[in-house]
């Protein structure tokens, strides 16, 4: 990792201030994201995994400045994006795109496919009105849809086709970086594979960089260069794909991997699962010290008191766990 990263996230923090109680009489803070640091290299797919509420989507949103960061920096082309207002952010929006989970709610039902895909092109003045039609046709063919789809409305399309349109729209202004926020989770199994292949093809063709947010670990293993595991708003582990799946270090990563079912009846029946007890604690009141210590099978006394340091256990393999650190020292 000597090359200058495409995007650098430094100690990113996002707290949401909410009001609870029937009349909103109680102020509270959701600790959605705490002290998250990572580099994203050009051309790679960095995946973030974890249970719902772990802050993986918040990370994506905050990087793109769709959520205002409460602290920390996002450095892109020498600029700290968290300091930019919407007007100054606009030129960067061209480079930084997002594909959302649900292709049913992210397309305007009153806009045709062509209008949806063409809008960012016109907005950023990347083509004249006369060139627009050809540009839309090219984009649709990039995502495997015929040009005649441009005049269709979202309700005429299947879920897989809609997700292709959403991807075409994200590609419209020739971005460098795309956040895929659970982009395939809402799709059927046979369609998921099509969209994964499409994302991989487009990455090759346009040298795209993905931040891939997902909860399906098998899919993540299939497409990622590096994988980050999050728990309750903090990164637990970040490593190259094979290192993470073959030699996971953090006890949470191990538990998460052991929970994934496999398509082999014999192995499934005989497998010893390490099942985590209980639910993820509330981010309104996260546990002290290491946030995982309440569910951790190897928790020690120090874990409930001191936040474990985020450091490299091996080159490129980062982890935050007291047990790991003491093993190596």
């Amino acid at each position: 990792m000597s090359a200058e990263p495409l995007l650098r996230v430094e100690n990113l923090v996002k707290h949401f201030h909410v009001r609870l109680g029937a009349f909103g009489e109680k102020a509270a803070t959701v600790y959605a994201l705490d002290d998250v640091s990572l580099d994203i290299q050009e051309g790679e797919t960095l995946s973030l995994v974890g249970e719902s509420g772990c802050g993986k989507s918040t990370t994506g949103f905050t990087i793109l400045n769709l959520h205002r960061a409460s602290g920390g920096k996002v450095i892109y082309k020498g600029q700290d994006l968290t300091r930019l207002d919407e007007k100054h952010m606009r030129p960067f929006r061209r480079d930084l795109q997002i594909v959302f989970q649900d292709p049913y709610s992210t397309l305007n039902p009153r806009m045709t496919v062509g209008e949806a895909v063409g809008e960012p092109i016109l907005f950023h003045k990347l083509a004249t009105k006369t060139e627009l039609k050809d540009r839309i046709a090219t984009l649709l063919s990039d995502v495997g849809l015929p040009a005649r789809f441009a005049s269709r409305y979202p309700h005429e399309l299947s879920g897989g086709q809609r997700q292709r349109v959403v991807i075409a729209r994200a590609l419209a202004c020739q971005p460098k970086f795309i956040v895929c926020d659970e982009a395939i989770s809402a799709l059927d199994v046979s369609i998921q594979a099509q969209i994964i292949n499409l994302l991989l093809d487009l990455q090759e063709k346009y040298r795209l960089t993905y931040l891939f947010i997902a909860h399906d670990l098998a899919v993540v293993r299939h497409i990622s260069t590096r994988v980050g595991v999050m728990y309750l708003g903090r990164l637990a582990e970040l490593a190259p794909r094979d290192a993470l799946f073959q030699t996971p270090l953090h006890p949470y990563t191990k538990a998460l991997l052991s929970a994934v079912p496999e398509t082999d009846p014999e192995r499934e029946r005989n497998r010893k699962r390490q099942i985590l007890q209980g639910d993820v604690p509330s981010p309104l009141n996260p546990p002290s010290g290491c946030r995982f210590h309440t569910r951790c099978p190897i928790a020690m006394e120090v874990c409930s008191k001191v936040v474990p340091e985020w450091k490299a256990a091996r080159p490129g393999h980062l982890v935050a766990c007291h047990a790991i650190n003491s093993d190596l020292s």
Partner: peptide
């Protein structure tokens, strides 16, 4: 064939079923 698993070697492309139901 279209389901990636944790045990087999990650292939470059998944095999997929074309079309929609």
């Amino acid at each position: 064939a279209s389901i990636p698993t944790l045990s087999d070697a990650p292939a470059a492309r998944l095999s997929s079923i074309g079309g929609t139901p």
